[in-house]
Amino acid sequence: MIRTLQTGQRCEVRIASVSSRSELLYSTGDILLEAANWTLDGQALILNGDGKLWKLDVDSAQLSEIPLTGIADLNNDHVLAPDGEGIFLSANDGHIYHAPLEGGAATRVTKDDGYFHFLHGVSPDGAELAYVGIEAGDFSRPGRLMVMASDGGAAARIDVGPGHCDGPEYSPDGAWLYLNTESFSTAKGHAQLARVRPDGSGFEQLLQSESVDWFPHLSPDGRYASYLRFPRGTVGHPADLPVDVVLVSTADWGAPLRTWPLSGGQGTLNVNSWSPDSACFAFVAYPLTDPAKDQARDA
């Protein structure tokens, strides 16, 4: 399903720095953009919108489509390859693809194995993918943490308990997979932040909270992390809720360095959006606002 903006709603791509500033980079009432990745050269953000892939230049704030062929409409799960030249993408047909970041023909990576595949992580050496598998595309079933070779092949499940999990991505050193999971609670939807080693050992909760916490993303230097905080009682990661983007030090997940409240959720912070120098990260908000009052601002 391709998401679109509501009447009177805008899409805001924002950049937050570890020094706690947030600036509006791009705003539009025409297309709902989601899930920013930062390119390795630091010059652009890669987002999806309208089922397509887009490049947003950081200096000029110019948006341009990256033309792809051989792939179904995209969803908001995409991760750059470590070489900076390719990108792995999840599509609405339930499969993961690889494509040149400059555009061109996409190649399907996953097989018809009875699962929908939602990509979130690529290992630092580019050899392995981490994704969430949904059996038969039945979203009433919990997502399972899966890994597979990035050039295809059989998948392996990593056991992180019975609860739904999402957002698995590798730490910069490849030693851990960071994710959110409902396995620490019997309350439906009560996702919490966790990590596990790629061999399935060391599964642990990072933060015990009353909120519903999703999508932990580590900075390239491993010193900071961002994540998305939903209101208590939220089930899944729906759109258009009052949420918080949270910045923490990885030395103390329980002490936020800064939070940014906004209207969003789905699409806001689905993938790792840190800049290559670890100085800032991007996120997307979806306010209902008066376009005449829309302007760049600091927060």
Rank of each mutant, 00 (worst) to 15 (best):
Y286L: 09
A292L: 12
G121K: 05
L32G: 07
Q205K: 07
G152E: 08
G133E: 06
R157V: 00
L269E: 08
C165W: 00
P220L: 01
S263N: 15
G222W: 07
W176K: 11
I66R: 08
L247T: 01
L53M: 14
A99T: 06
L25Y: 02
S17E: 12
A105M: 12
G49R: 05
L247Y: 11
E65D: 08
W38Q: 04
A99Q: 04
L33V: 13
H190Y: 12
G114W: 05
D199I: 09
P172Q: 11
V147L: 12
G222D: 00
H117I: 03
C280V: 09
L228S: 07
P198R: 01
V248G: 08
V212D: 05
S275F: 02
I134T: 06
P142R: 09
I87F: 13
R108S: 07
G236T: 10
L40Q: 15
S17D: 15
G84Y: 13
V235G: 03
E182Y: 04
P172D: 09
V243L: 04
N76T: 03
I46D: 06
L5G: 09
L80D: 02
D298W: 09
G84A: 01
R157Q: 14
D138M: 01
I87P: 08
N48R: 12
E34Y: 03
I15E: 14
G236S: 04
D213Q: 10
F184Q: 02
S17K: 09
E12P: 00
G114D: 05
L63K: 05
G163T: 15
H190D: 14
K52I: 08
F215I: 00
S150T: 03
P124R: 09
V18C: 02
R21A: 13
L32K: 07
P82C: 14
T69W: 01
F88H: 03
A155V: 03
L257K: 01
K52E: 10
D199Y: 00
